[in-house]
């Protein structure tokens, strides 16, 4: 009974979240005394490199109907590979496409499904695994009652570990028929680090007063090599693009470092960021609720503090 990992390859390349899934799957496989097989769909450069993350074999599936994503078609492909390799656990990333398939695959494979897990499972006498619930205010440990399991792994929950070497890739053609979804356009935001993947994030709120002031945030982010984010009112007012909105109704992230500038720290905002490893809050109001969730706090005017912090970061990087 192997562990099967589906590794996404948007635009023909793996992303960090893919290496996280490969690492996660090989650790689960080791705990279950079995091997981890990876499946990739479509043409991917260097698919065998997944071996470095502990994967023992890579299956690359090609087919005319597999050029664009259709959850119905991809689900058929993945469940057919799952049966073929004799897996009992399927692991994917907790991305838009991963989530669109996890539930489908659970139905097809008669499996129990846990989405967005944040740690490795406990496999001593069963299979339990945890995820963050209630806006990050609690962790739930789930048990899976069925012999088959489908899991999606939340980004930044495990550090990719590259220790092994590349493995062989088995190429496979599968055409299980086209789907009813026709993708007409895929747009990706230019430049920068995509927010859900970022390890360092600089985020700003209504304390910025207006969109014209964001230069200091961008300077700090670029000095750090961080992604930028914002609070909801800022996105609602179109000061910043919607994909930067973090929180309960926006994206949930768990970077290593979250710097919150001029954000009050409302519970709905915290819901999306309180799993960050380290939180720095810059606010002129010492009573701002965000300080209660912070590791480091600076009380001061952001228009003075942020440029000073940027200068200090640059000085540190140049040492």
């Amino acid at each position: 009974m192997s562990v099967l990992a589906y590794i996404e390859s948007p635009g023909g390349h793996f992303k960090k979240s893919g290496f996280e899934v490969a690492t996660y799957a090989s650790k689960v496989a080791a705990a279950l005394n079995t091997n981890a097989v990876a499946v990739v769909i479509g043409k991917v450069e260097n698919a065998g490199s997944l071996g470095q993350y502990g994967i023992s074999k890579v299956i690359q599936v090609n087919g005319d109907s597999l050029v664009n994503f259709d959850s119905q078609v991809f689900t058929k492909v993945l469940s057919s590979i799952y049966q073929e390799v004799g897996a009992n656990t399927l692991i994917m990333s907790h991305t838009a496409n991963g989530k669109s398939m996890a539930g489908r695959l659970a139905i097809r494979l008669n499996a129990g499904c846990i989405s967005g897990v944040n740690a490795l499972p406990n496999t001593s006498g069963g299979f339990t695994v945890s995820k963050s619930v209630y806006s990050g205010k609690a962790t739930a440990t789930y048990g899976i009652n069925t012999p088959d399991r489908v899991i999606t792994v939340m980004g930044n929950s495990i550090q990719p570990q590259s220790t092994g070497s590349a493995v062989d890739v088995e190429n496979k053609s599968l055409d299980l028929g086209g789907g009813k979804v026709k993708v007409v356009e895929v747009k990706s935001e230019e430049g920068g680090v995509p927010l859900p993947e970022a390890e360092l994030v600089v985020s700003a709120g209504r304390g910025m007063k207006g969109p014209e002031n964001w230069g200091i945030i961008e300077d700090l982010a670029s000095a750090l090599g961080a992604a930028t984010a914002c609070s909801r009112p800022v996105a609602d007012a179109d000061w910043r693009p919607h994909h930067e909105h973090v929180g309960q109704t926006g994206v949930a992230i768990r970077p290593n470092l979250y710097i919150a500038v001029g954000i009050s720290g409302a519970i709905q905002h915290l819901a999306g960021v309180n799993n960050s490893k380290v939180i720095v809050v810059i606010n002129k109001d010492p009573e701002a609720p965000f300080f209660k969730a912070a590791d480091y706090g600076v009380v001061g005017d952001l228009f003075e503090v942020v440029p000073k912090l940027t200068a200090a970061i640059k000085k540190y990087k140049n040492q």
Binding site: F69, K182, E189, H243
Partner: peptide, 11 residues
């Protein structure tokens, strides 16, 4: 809405 982008499709 996808990570760092979006996709338009017809169904």
């Amino acid at each position: 809405e996808l990570e760092g982008g979006e996709e338009v499709s017809q169904i």
